[in-house]
Amino acid sequence: MGDAPEPITGIVEAKDFDVVIIGAGVSGASAAEAASREGAKVAVLEQSGSFTSLDMDCAHN
């Protein structure tokens, strides 16, 4: 195994969430909506910075 990563420093603000979802694809967005509807405070983290995968056409007929 390699060395441990450097610790994160310089955090300006901390936030509290009930649910944190990694990935804003179809599954992540659906999970976020479901958790939100149940009253959870939800954060969605997406590497690309947008929900572009939701704009894709359905692949089946």
Rank of each mutant, 00 (worst) to 15 (best):
K41T: 02
I8V: 12
I22S: 15
S30Q: 03
A14S: 14
M1V: 05
A24K: 01
N61L: 08
L45K: 06
D16R: 14
K41Y: 00
E46Q: 08
P5K: 03
D55I: 13
I21V: 15
V42I: 00
D3C: 02
N61Y: 02
I8Y: 10
M1A: 08
T9W: 04
I21D: 08
A14W: 07
A32T: 04
A40C: 13
E6W: 01
A35N: 00
K41G: 07
A43G: 07
A59D: 05
P7N: 11
S30E: 05
P7V: 02
D55A: 12
D55N: 12
I21C: 07
F51R: 06
F51N: 04
F17S: 10
L45N: 06
V12C: 04
T52H: 05
E46P: 03
G25S: 03
K41E: 01
S36L: 00
P7D: 04
V12W: 00
N61E: 02
G10M: 08
V20T: 08
F51Q: 07
V26E: 03
I11Q: 07
E38G: 10
G25M: 03
A40R: 06
G49S: 03
K15R: 15
I22R: 13
H60Q: 06
I22L: 15
I8D: 13
G25F: 01
L45P: 07
A34R: 08
G2H: 12
I11D: 06
S50K: 06
I11C: 11
I11G: 12
N61S: 06
A24P: 02
Q47V: 09
A29E: 01
A35D: 00
A59E: 07
P7E: 03
K15M: 09
M1E: 10
I22F: 14
D3V: 12
G49Q: 08
D55W: 13
C58Y: 14
D16A: 13
P7G: 01
I8P: 05
S50R: 15
S48A: 07
E33Q: 01
V19E: 03
E38D: 15
K41N: 03
F17N: 14
A14M: 15
P5C: 06
A34G: 06
A43S: 14
M56H: 15
I11M: 14
H60V: 13
V19H: 03
V44G: 04
A35W: 00
G25Q: 02
K41R: 02
D16Q: 14
V20F: 11
M1Y: 12
I22W: 11
V12I: 04
